[in-house]
């Protein structure tokens, strides 16, 4: 555990310019602060509309902040000016967005290879990695399908491995498993944990599901309704490696679940 956090959110605030220009009620996020250690799996939970996506957009630098800052490796990024944003901060912050955002004119394989293509990293080794990830998430046989020929869950899986394939040190995930059935979801959660334990990436994982937040995370942040603030912080003490399917029978699970649910309004 190093003293310097990898990612640090300080007094981050955001409001959207409104059409009627009422200002006071418009803060979506106000003075939000937290930090993420290198290699940590942080889960964030909060009610719908609390600003979780907005928060990730600012960390990924695709949206400007109205105040505060985000530090990555102690470098302060000027994210208050839309013009100086550096989306993905030079490929070091991957982002699995809430919508799949697959390119409709690219097949599954071409979509998965897209980051490697634009980064000029397409070679036999990375192609083999992409093929393995595709097989892993059950998309084998669908490599040459276009997004409209895939189911919602398949698109979701494709967008997930599109980020995993180029191996960014930090990955932001916005409800990546929201649209999946329980079985597929459990498989992918296990895969994600295995990948994370192997590579020790830093993951910021947004979810609606308290059980998922506990099962995956080292620590869970609970966000309040807008304007989003940290309503609670919980260390998940359940030891790793964890058994995702049997996690509910762990003695620590029940009390954690109760405490978090009391804070999620």
């Amino acid at each position: 555990m190093s003293a310097q956090p990898l990612l640090e959110v300080r007094d981050l605030s955001k409001r959207f310019a409104s059409r009627e220009s009422r200002d006071a009620s418009l803060w979506v996020i106000k003075d939000l602060s937290f930090s993420v250690r290198d290699g940590e799996f942080l889960t964030i939970i909060g009610p719908s509309g609390s600003g979780k996506t907005t928060l990730l957009n600012m960390i990924a630098q695709i949206d400007a902040a109205s105040g505060g800052e985000v530090r990555f490796k102690s470098e302060s990024a000027p994210i208050n000016d839309p013009k100086s944003l550096n989306p993905g901060l030079s490929c070091r912050i991957g982002y699995v967005t809430q919508e799949d955002n697959l390119l409709p004119w690219r097949t599954t394989l071409q979509n998965v290879l897209f980051p490697l293509t634009v980064q000029g990293r397409l070679n036999d080794e990375t192609r083999a990695r992409a093929a393995e990830l595709i097989r892993h998430v059950g998309l084998a046989g669908f490599e040459n399908h276009y997004p409209h020929e895939l189911s919602g869950g398949m698109r979701k899986r494709a967008s997930l491995i599109r980020t995993l394939v180029y191996d960014p040190p930090v990955i932001l995930m916005d409800e990546p498993f929201g649209a999946l059935d329980a079985q597929t979801r459990a498989v992918l959660q296990e895969d994600l944990l295995r990948l994370w334990e192997m590579g020790r990436k830093t993951i910021v994982f947004v979810t609606h599901d308290i059980g998922e937040a506990i099962a995956l995370g080292d620590r869970t942040l609970v966000l309040s309704r807008a304007p989003a603030k940290v309503a609670g912080e919980h260390q998940i003490t359940i030891p790793r490696p964890r058994d995702i399917r049997g996690i509910m029978s762990h003695p620590d699970f029940g009390p954690l679940y109760q405490r978090i649910r009391a804070q999620v309004q």
Binding site: A60, I62, P87, G88, S90, C91, I93, G94, Y95, T97, E99, N101, L103, F114, P115, T117, V118, Q119, R162, T163, Y166
Partner: peptide, 21 residues
């Protein structure tokens, strides 16, 4: 624009965005 943002996060420059999106 969401597709453009996705591409930029993945490392696409101005030319990639024009060409691929």
């Amino acid at each position: 624009t969401r597709l453009v943002q996705m591409a930029q996060v993945a490392g696409a420059n101005e030319r990639d965005v024009a060409r691929h999106i």
